[in-house]
């Protein structure tokens, strides 16, 4: 209830009200309903990777069935194909009754394989994630403020194509806000090493080493109860105090708005 039960989806608004959506987990269903209420039809989608929990909301994102909608999917094709093809897997028989072809929205795929590109007033840089089947992390920058989004990233195990801890430190350097995968408790991690996720103390180490201003713990394990997420946050805050560091830390909760 407190932190939420939907899978990954983040809404980012720029100063000019450009709308960037990060991932299409189940949370995008509710976002879609709100965008329709708002009368908003133009936006960009960025994907970290194509594991089900990051794409499974797409068929239930109502704006795709409206011809006024115009979506730009920006990014570099994964080894397994571009996101349009991968999204079409969520809308294929015999798993979903509506084929991808009947989407009424205009969906453009903008290929950017350079490390940097921009959407409206937001400049974006990318980094490969350390995760099975790979993925992409993002840094969004506007007016000198920056927001780094690294989910499904295992900091102490280097998956093929992924970076080292120091690479993520450099990428997150002095960010105003860092959201990082904190799927596990430290004592759970040894049994789940190489699964592609970090424990919260690793996320905290990254935030401290990169000197970021604020850390949001993210990608809560599906079995994590709210009071255990609270415990994670308390443990992080105690550690920050113990080290005499300056860092704001909380756990990401559905519908929470963060102004950067």
């Amino acid at each position: 209830m407190k932190y939420g039960g939907d899978t990954s989806c983040i809404e980012v608004r720029s100063r000019n009200n450009d709308l960037i959506i990060l991932d299409a987990g189940t949370g995008i269903r509710r976002l879609g309903n709100r965008l329709i209420e708002e009368g908003r039809f133009r936006f960009s989608l960025l994907f970290t990777h194509a594991h089900w929990d990051h794409v499974m909301g797409f068929p239930f994102f109502r704006p795709i069935y409206d011809q006024r909608t115009h979506i730009t999917i920006t990014g570099c094709p994964l080894d397994q194909g571009n996101m349009q093809k991968l999204l079409s897997h969520t809308m294929s028989a015999p798993h979903f009754p509506v084929p991808y072809d009947v989407i009424k929205a205009r969906i453009e795929y903008e290929q950017f394989c350079e490390d940097e590109f921009s959407i409206g007033s937001v400049q974006i840089t990318t980094i490969p994630l350390s995760h099975p089947n790979k993925g992409v992390g993002y840094r969004l920058i506007e007016d000198g403020k920056s927001f780094v989004f690294l989910t499904d990233n295992e900091l102490s195990y280097r998956h093929p194509g992924g970076g080292r801890f120091e690479d993520y430190v450099a990428f997150s350097r002095e960010a105003d806000f860092l959201i990082h995968d904190a799927e596990y408790m430290p004592d759970e991690y040894p049994g789940r090493a190489t699964w592609g996720h970090s424990h919260y103390m690793e996320a905290l180490e990254l935030a401290l080493a990169a000197d970021v201003k604020c850390l949001g713990l993210f990608h809560h394990n599906q079995d994590r109860a709210d009071h255990d997420v609270d415990r994670m946050v308390e443990a992080c805050r105690e550690e920050i105090v113990r080290r005499g560091a300056v860092l704001e830390c909380f756990a990401m909760a559905q519908d929470r708005v963060v102004r950067i």
Binding site: H49, A50, H51, W52, V55, L78, D79, Q80, L86, H89, P94, H95, P132, N133, K134, W195, G196
Partner: peptide, 12 residues
Amino acid sequence: VLDKQLAYPHFP
């Protein structure tokens, strides 16, 4: 049918 669900790059 399950092979398609338990398949890279959608599931590890």
